[in-house]
Amino acid sequence: MIEVKNLTKCYGDIKAIDDISFTVDTGEVLGFLGPNGAGKSTTMNIITGYISSTSGTVTVDGSEILESPRETKRKIGYLPEIPPLYPDMTVRKYLEFMFDLKKVRLPKKEHIEEIMRLVQISDKGGRLIKNLSKGYRQRVGFAQALLGNPPVLILDEPTVGLDPKQIIEIRKLIRSLGKKHTVIFSSHVLSEISATCDRIIVISEGRLVADAKTDELSKSLGKSQKLSLTIEGNSADILAEIKKIPGVQKYVKLRDISEKTAEYSVEYGTDNDIRREVFSAMVRINCPILEMKSGNESLEDMFLKLTQNAGKGGR
């Protein structure tokens, strides 16, 4: 549906984005993740045709933004970081204006009513936009992007500045929209992306550092799993016994808790589960396990790892 190829944008000598390529399939919800200033908004602005790239192409549903801007733009609904609102207009007047501006060919009144119902602003139609709260402005911006039911939705940090209840509502909305539309949405909040998206793209300092399915990403990046244990007994014996277990990559004693008990950390590969072996090994040497906790590397750790590596120039 969307194909981005070797996209580069320079501002003078500074490369805001550097050779980014990815594709989004029809009906997919793609999360666009990166720290502030990573180039998320720039990429989105290029896809929607607000600014031009220095090099590279963007194809939306077969049409290229530079070759046939009108057709391409008609297919995209865009909610920029700051919703493009006119404070001196009422919500309904504004949506009517955007309807005309986007040259939508649907029954005007019904369509606007329907969109307003969808984002729950039906009762705000007569209010001036300047008198609306941040959350409602965001929703009006959302409504504007949805006008004309474009097949592609591009949402730049749609949940910033909303209260937790609104965030949950907006996420639900994005999820439900993902059934009919292809959605790209950006955020610097990880939990949000992992809760809403099928796939995640991580960019950092203008470069693509990861592109994977949400659940695969944490698996593929966390090449090892961690086990933290509290065991009673002679630590030399315990470590020697752990060493014998196949699949163990790293083992270390973290600290003594009391005279006899200590905390250990064991790392092992993702392909096998060693918890049973650890248990039976400890039974053999008669050292009771007081606590065993397994931890998959969280998305947060992985995100930090990815973006820090990129910062050092590695990939």
Binding site: Y50, E71, K73, Y78, P84, L85, L101, K103
Partner: peptide
Amino acid sequence: KQKSDQALLTSPCS
């Protein structure tokens, strides 16, 4: 200034 030009420039208007 109020960034509403984003709506104009990303609309299918030349």
